[in-house]
């Protein structure tokens, strides 16, 4: 497992909002534990135990890349309420929540709307940085969890979406 794969693994864990992860493959052991808030306070321990079979060197892109495949089988710890099967779209930053592109304009989405993966559903502003937040699931908007113009925190849930299967 090389450095690039570890980076990809951490990105994946961040995206899936998985707080803790451990992988042991032969002589390589990777353990990732993430702080929940803020997501950037990720902590990583990389323990490569040298042995006769020699772990691939860091940066060796020709190394077999099975890590991603085994990661995919990890339990999907999506930011969802398992009881209702709803997926929460969260804010990556602190700011002020806007439901529409500009004051007075119609909202990007409203409950009942179908959204696609990557569709812009709101804006969070901080210091004149307008952050377009996309839906990270396809499905139906069930509920807007915050009010227009409301201040929000890192990682705060903004919308509940019922994912389409």
């Amino acid at each position: 497992m090389n450095l690039k794969e570890i980076r990809e693994l951490i990105e994946f864990l961040k995206e899936q909002d998985i707080a803790e992860f451990e992988l042991e493959r032969g002589d390589v052991k990777v353990r990732v534990k993430r702080g929940v808030e803020p997501v950037v306070a990720a902590e990583m321990r990389y323990v490569a135990m040298p042995s006769a079979s020699a772990a691939p060197a860091l940066g060796d892109v020709s190394a077999p890349p099975p890590a991603a495949a085994s990661v995919v089988t990890a339990p999907p710890a999506k930011a969802a309420d398992p009881e209702e099967g709803l997926h929460m779209v969260k804010s990556p930053i602190v700011g002020t929540f806007y439901e529409s592109p500009s004051p007075g304009a119609p909202p990007f989405v409203k409950p009942g709307d179908k959204v696609t993966l990557g569709q812009v559903i709101c804006i969070v502003e901080a210091m004149k940085l307008m952050n377009e937040i996309e839906s990270d699931a396809a499905g139906e908007i069930v509920k807007m969890l915050v009010d227009n113009n409301q201040p929000i925190e890192y990682g705060q849930a903004l919308y509940a979406i019922r994912p389409s299967i």
């Binding site: 961040k14 995206e15 950037v40 990556p92 952050n131």
Partner: peptide, 12 residues
Amino acid sequence: GILTELQWDGAR
């Protein structure tokens, strides 16, 4: 005046 617009992919 400066207006910055960002598009996010999850937390990135």
